[in-house]
Design a binder for these strands. Sequence first.
DNA 1: ATGGCCGCGCGTCGCGGA
Length: 293
Amino acid sequence: MNPSLRICTWNVNSIKVRITHLLKWLEIQAKANTPIDVICLQELKLTSDKFPLKEIEQAGYYSLVLGQKTYNGVAILVRKSMLSSLTQDPETAFLQTLENIPGFEDEQQRVLTTTLHFNKTKPLRIVCGYFPNGQALDSDKFVYKLAWLNALHQFIQKELAQHERLILLGDFNIAPKDEDVYDPMKWIGQNLVSPEERSAFFNLLSLGLHDSFLLFEQAPKSFSWWDYRMMGFRRNAGMRIDHILVSQALLSSCSHCEIDKTPRAWEQPSDHAPVILTLTNQDNKADAINIKS
DNA sequence: ATGGCCGCGCGTCGCGGA
């Protein structure tokens, strides 16, 4: 038996509307023998008390939720059966939990951090983030985005000093490079692609994080978000703005990373697709051969 | 083809999203 973990991020754009998609997708993954062990959700768009905790628990997952009315909101779900014997109930499943960025005053609920203890692999520090959109380069929201990114950078630096096995994942609202944009020329001067945002992204990497999607061969024009308008998905007019960054200590455990476009084609979809990282035990060298040299 | 789509709270339109 080869212990592996599948860790996922998905901006669901309202959990109330997307709960059936989430459960259906988790079931499909389980039946394909590729069950999702950890799933980070963004844009819940409801208060924590309205989160569908019971339905998700019936599907086999405990939830850690940080909600707010109308906007934002994030959650971390963990598959019960993967938890270590000492953490197998909802009270102990999530340890050393932090809400938002400590020391950064913010009304908006965008970050959840926790430590998960698994059955067969070492604990993981998980940071789930819904990065600000920024709206436009000359807006107050963009000023907020840059301040938020700066605060996150400081936070992640401290977290990395304490937690060797760390994953920062979520909707970054940053397309790191032009190849992550369907039509880069059209986006010049706009948010999500600005030099300031891209610098912030690469500054995060400079702390010792790696964009796990780029560790593997990927199809050109791989995107994780497509505009609802202008038949964005059918034209593959999208962007890669949802990311899974892993710390150095996890690098050799990464065995696969993919964007699953399937649920984006369903009726009434989220505009984002889930991104999934597979971590395989470091002792199993055979699984490292897929990594690009 | 630059506008079209969504979800939300509220109230049948405006805001935010990316």
